[in-house]
Amino acid sequence: MKKRIETVDFNVYVLFLFKIEPTVTKANIIDHCRCREVSQPFNAVFNAFIFFTDDVHAVFPKNKATYIYDSLEEEEATKYIKAIYVSNNSSGFSKLFHYPINYFYGEPEEIYYLDDFMKKQLK
């Protein structure tokens, strides 16, 4: 696991990179995101958890304070991204993007809005 903390206009942005095994399922990733989200690390406004299948290629996006990779410039990294979870703690918005093959080879299979799950879990 790697983390990068950035401050932009007095807002804290935290990106975490995780290495996962190929056998990890969407459900495993969702459970992991739910547990991590409850703690809201570093009082960040924005958190992103990026899940790679290879730790050698687990690198942060070139653009600061974002979870978006450029598939042309960052092709090698995008071929190993299996899922990305993003959470805006100020608005309550959160999503999980899960890629059937990887980030480079296509759109997410499904997009989950996890904020409703989180509200239910905290009650």
Score class of each variant (00 low, 15 high):
P22K: 09
E109C: 05
A65T: 14
L96H: 02
V38H: 04
I84P: 00
A58E: 07
A48D: 00
R36H: 11
P41W: 09
I68A: 10
S94M: 03
V86C: 08
D55E: 15
S87A: 14
A83T: 08
L114E: 00
V8A: 07
T25D: 00
M1L: 09
N88G: 09
A83P: 04
E76F: 06
H98G: 04
K95P: 00
K120T: 08
K119A: 08
A77I: 11
V45I: 04
A77Q: 09
F93G: 01
N63I: 15
S87C: 13
I68W: 03
P41Y: 12
K82F: 01
E73T: 10
C33A: 13
D54Y: 05
F117T: 07
A48H: 00
I68V: 15
H98E: 07
F42V: 02
V45L: 06
K62Y: 10
V14R: 06
S91W: 00
Q40W: 00
D54P: 06
I29G: 01
M118Q: 05
I20A: 04
C35G: 12
E110A: 11
P22S: 08
K82S: 08
D31G: 13
F51L: 04
F97S: 06
K64W: 06
H57A: 13
V59M: 04
Y103E: 00
I30Q: 05
E74L: 10
R36V: 11
G106K: 07
V45G: 04
E107S: 12
F117A: 10
K120F: 05
N63Q: 15
Y85P: 02
R36K: 14
N43S: 14
D54K: 10
I5K: 11
L15Q: 12
K2I: 14
F49L: 11
T78P: 07
V38I: 15
E109Q: 11
N11D: 12
G92W: 02
S91H: 05
Y13K: 03
V45W: 09
I50Q: 07
A44N: 03
